Amino acid sequence: MGKIIDNRQLVDAPGALRQRRYGLFDVATRLPMDRRVAAAGIQFLTDHCGPAELYDQTCTDSPVKPYTEGSDLMGADPFWVIVRKRCGSVGRTPEEMVAAARSQLDAQDQTRVEDVVWDGGGLATIDATDTLTGSGATVVTPLATGAGAAIAALENAAYQVYGYRGVIHVNTQAEGALKDAGVLDRLESGVWRTAVGTAVSLGAGYDITGPADAAPDAGFVWAFMTAPVFEWSMDVAQPEATRTLDRSLNQWDVVAERIHAVAWECPEVFAVQVPLAAPAASVPPAVP
């Protein structure tokens, strides 16, 4: 039986119970941001990131005990993610428009933040050294083919430096190869982890480029590994819709925006090319 009236009815949009994918916001420790950070950025000392050395305690040579010179500073600049929506005021309430902008921001916020973390997202205000591609990452060469060997080499290099579990950042295009290789070993509280416990951030907002934005070999994507990641953000700011109404055109003009800053604990970053073939069928690329 066909419809009786040729006039579709407006109902509430479905999808209220949405689940975020397994990206940066899941692996990062999320912290509140105050106005001072929003105005000037943030920095912190990396005292716990220094090396530890073995010491020969015999009396024959009486060697000098090694020391670490000073402490590095890690930093992060604030950046804004915004959604602006315009729509005729007839038939839409101000509350509906404010909610619509907030919903769109919530859906795309993580992807845009991942974009900035990878290479600055084209923002002139982001220091390139605070991004994955501009961090001066050490390139790792796997000992065998396949995504599993690539990630194992990445973890081996990083954990010779980090004292704590780190984070692997990679574009979602590598998901199939990582799953096939058993890299995505288990799911803990919404976070994919490898067999040794490294968190894996599968980012649709990440690019596939490597250190200094170098392109990967054909059939590969670059992956980075950092120390644990922190993300600071403020509450979503939304002016009242009636205050931003374009009265000349009778159009709602609403905005939703959130300020973010992202940093990882230690300055050392590592990178490797991950083959996309599953099962693996490629030769490891030469180190650029």
Results as ranks from 00 to 15, higher is better:
D119K: 07
A101E: 01
G88H: 03
G121Q: 05
L105C: 02
V113K: 03
I42M: 06
E114W: 07
G70L: 02
T46N: 15
P51Q: 08
E95R: 08
M74C: 08
V116W: 01
E114T: 02
E69F: 14
R102H: 05
V98P: 00
A76P: 11
T60G: 03
L73T: 12
D77K: 13
A101H: 01
P51T: 10
T93D: 05
T111H: 05
H48V: 07
G70H: 02
Q43N: 15
D106L: 11
G120T: 04
T60D: 06
I82G: 09
D61N: 14
Y55W: 10
D72E: 07
C87Q: 14
M74K: 12
V90H: 12
K65M: 12
M97N: 04
K85D: 06
R86N: 06
W118M: 06
A100R: 06
V81L: 03
E96H: 11
P78I: 01
F79K: 04
G41M: 00
A99M: 07
T68H: 08
P63A: 02
R112V: 14
A99D: 11
P78C: 02
S89W: 08
P78R: 02
Q57L: 08
V81I: 15
E69I: 11
V116A: 02
E53C: 08
L105F: 07
Y55K: 08
R84G: 10
L45K: 14
I42V: 15
E53G: 11
A76V: 03
V90Q: 12
K65E: 08
E96A: 14
R84T: 07
V81D: 01
W118D: 11
R102W: 00
Y67A: 13
